[in-house]
Design a binder for these strands. Structure first.
Length: 668
RNA sequence: GCGCCUGUAGCUCAGUAGGAUAGAGCAGCUGCCUUCUAAGCAGCGGGCCGGGGGUUCGAAUCCCUCCAGGCGCGCCA
């Protein structure tokens, strides 16, 4: 009972913390302070209790206070009376046009539009957000380097990459890691297949043509089936595993060749989606540098794990789990080898800089001007360091929740409570395949699997849509559209645009679902370019940009001169008709919520909201675009004002698209 | 058995730190291209928010319970 109560208290304090963070959004924060200041003379209210929410309708104002309701309850009076009095107290607030009482006791605030727009326009490039961490590590992708990437991996990478982008936008220092399990059983399976089934020599392997990842995809499923059918082969596989872990030739050479080549393929796939990394820590380096030994010593010394001499788990080192009194998690097996979780605890310690040891690094690839570093178990001569974050996000699907909990427990048991609290499992649901998608990829299914309406992606069974296949199909479709609409463009320009469109389609598709929602992948849906899709967002931006381009062509002004002209302009909003005034305001106020959306996305790790926000913004922009012509407007003053309005919207849209990792083509 | 998640329009999903009339997209139907790109816009139809209780001025949102589904709970990784 007592602990339950404590847990509740803890939750409440966490929630308060989040509330404060989210409403950091400048205008609201300033307003909340001022409101609290005015009201506290009459009632006992603090800034934290001032909850400013959006109104359901533009006619009701821009922001609403609902504090009259709880206050009325406390004071046992009518909320309407309180609201009326509050409205009096708040009269003449700076930045506020007027205040009205509505409904049962809502206090509705109408912002001073002229003032608001001027201010927001001037601060277009300042987010108004502040970093809170020393260094944040985002670990994502983490694909076993033994086969082609599939759409399940894409979801992981898109979520992780978007999180990193949002954190950077907030001003945080972010390090993106992609962990490579280059000595694990999945790689072992493929090495087994190459040696025992395919009888490939290392030289033959090196000469193998393109699509090595596709080749391994098929080989991996073949090996899985072979091993299931030939139990006796298990000992050979175990032997290979051991040799790879100890770096013995030639098995370890096979493993290295396979994992590096597949890793190259994965990076190339992710690059198509604008996703990149800072560092690739490898399991082989962890083994070579004996990270586990260090962690093991510490875990033993602190009593975080202990030895069992009798019972079911006799001979094992185990860890107690909070809240599961009679259950123990085995960390070291009775044969002395460490389990997956054990290694993960050591690795997590490294991420926080708590291991007292770092990898060596060397360049693995370059991505534009950015070097992607890979870990090494031996000195390389490069003086670079990674890890040592103050906060760590592990992007891993929901099935790993239990193990992630154990890892956090490991940190806690070692006394690292703060790090445990900042060790965040960013979990999300899996990607499955719809019945039609299953029919699309030719794959043998068991009778049991055939009966289900959808199937979980499985590399082992070969059930999955390969990432490159999906992107290829999207590019192909985009290219056909681009060629139809812009026949004057040369081939390379058309291809470039198609790549950008395909990338946007994938990224939006992966982000539009809430993370707890199981995505049942369907080709028809993923290949759609209309409605709530990435290409729709791009199209919106392209059309706006086209207005600026045409304006510049007509007037001969440069982009800077154009910006200077509209920044200088000072249009009096009262000159607008009521309809245009409303449409202008709806667009501007909605767009200005971008900061709050980013903070919300980070706090809840829910990027579907940010995706939705961007989509809704585009809907508003398209509505405006359709209704108000800019370039043909005869009234020069009004024309400049409209240019300013869409410039504002366009800038914010670009910011949002950047966060979603969506590029804007020059033409579509 | 225990734990986590999910159930909202014909379909796919938003909305869940309680707030005013439950929203999009797709699919269907009606209009709009001598006009800044129709990958667009405007409009129509479509809902016991899984069922039942409770808390509250107010519940899709919080609590209890039941029903249905998914996923975890290895000396696998």
């Amino acid at each position: 009972m007592n602990t339950l109560f404590q847990v509740k208290l803890q939750l409440v304090s966490q929630i308060n913390f989040v509330i404060i963070k989210i409403t950091m959004y400048k205008t609201k924060k300033i307003l909340r302070d001022k409101i609290a200041d005015r009201l506290k003379a009459e009632w006992p209210v603090t800034t934290d209790e001032i909850d400013l929410v959006s109104t359901p309708d533009e006619k009701l104002g821009d922001l609403a206070l609902s504090l009259a309701f709880p206050l009325a309850r406390k004071l046992k009076t009518n909320p309407r009376v309180i609201a009326t009095r509050a409205a009096e107290l708040l009269a003449g607030l700076e930045g506020v046009e007027k205040i009205e009482v509505a409904g049962g006791g809502y206090i509705n605030i109408f912002l001073d539009r002229q003032n608001f727009f001027d201010q927001k326009f001037r601060n277009l490039n300042k987010s108004g957000l502040e970093p809170e961490e020393k260094k944040i590590i985002v670990e994502h992708t983490n694909i076993n380097p033994n086969k082609a990437a599939h759409i399940g991996h894409l979801r992981n990478a898109c979520l992780g990459d978007t999180l990193a982008r949002c954190l950077v936008y907030k001003g945080e220092q972010v390090e993106v890691q992609n962990y490579i399990d280059d000595t694990g059983v999945q790689v072992v399976d493929v090495v087994f297949g190459l040696i025992e089934l395919e009888k490939k020599t290392l030289t033959e392997l090196g000469k193998m043509a393109d699509k090595f990842d596709y080749y391994c995809w098929d080989l991996y499923t073949r090996v899985s089936r072979y091993l299931a059918d030939h139990e006796s082969a298990g000992s050979r596989k175990a032997e290979i595993l051991k040799k790879i872990e100890h770096g013995e030739s030639p098995e370890a050479d096979y493993a290295r060749l396979v994992s590096r080549r597949i890793l190259q393929a994965h990076l190339a796939t992710m690059n198509r989606l604008n996703i990149t990394y800072d560092v690739l820590p490898c399991e082989s380096s962890i083994l070579k540098l004996k990270f586990w030994d260090k962690a093991f010593t510490r875990l033993k010394e602190t009593g975080a794990i202990y030895y069992l001499s009798e019972g079911e788990s006799a001979g094992c080192w185990v860890m107690k789990l909070e809240g599961e009194e009679e259950k123990e998690k085995i960390i070291v097996r009775s044969d002395g080898t460490v389990t997956y979780v054990g290694k993960d605890i050591a690795y997590q310690l490294w991420k926080f800089g708590l291991l007292g040891q770092d990898f060596y690094y060397e360049p693995f690839a370059t991505d534009g001007s950015r070097t992607i570093w890979i870990s090494s178990g031996e000195p390389t001569g490069y003086d670079v360091h990674f890890g040592g974050g103050s906060q760590v996000y592990n992007v891993i699907d929901v099935r790993q929740s239990y193990l992630q909990k154990v890892v956090v427990q490991g940190l806690k048991s070692l006394g690292y409570d703060q790090e445990a609290a900042k060790s965040i499992h960013f979990s999300y649901e899996m990607v499955a395949l719809s019945a039609t998608s299953l029919a699309d990829i030719k794959v043998d299914l068991s009778d049991k699997d055939k009966k289900r309406s959808f199937l979980e992606v499985s590399g082992r069974k070969g059930i999955g849509v390969k990432a490159d296949d999906l992107i290829d199909r999207l590019e192909e479709k985009a290219l056909a559209e681009v060629a139809k609409r812009n026949p004057e463009l040369d081939e390379s320009a058309k291809k470039q645009i198609s790549r950008q469109i395909a990338g946007a389609a994938v990224r939006y598709f992966m982000l539009k679902y809430a993370r707890n929602s199981l995505v049942v992948f369907d080709f028809d849906e993923a290949l759609n370019f209309e409605g709530e899709t990435g290409p729709y967002l791009q199209y919106t931006a392209v059309r706006l940009r086209s207005i600026f381009r045409k304006f510049e062509e007509k007037t001969g002004l440069s982009s800077q001169e154009l910006l200077a002209r509209i920044a200088r302009s000072n249009f009096n909003l009262s000159k607008l008709g009521s309809e245009e005034s409303r449409d202008f305001w709806e667009l501007v106020i909605y767009a200005s919520y971008v900061d709050e959306e980013v903070l919300r996305a980070i706090a809840t790790l829910e990027f579907a909201g940010l995706a939705k926000f961007t989509f809704n913004l585009c809907q508003k922009i398209n509505g405006y675009y359709h209704h108000y012509t800019v370039l043909a407007e005869k009234n020069e003053e009004l024309k400049t004002f409209r240019l300013k309005t869409i410039y504002f919207a366009h800038e914010i849209l670009n910011q949002a698209l950047g966060l979603l990792g969506i590029q804007v083509p020059g033409k579509m």
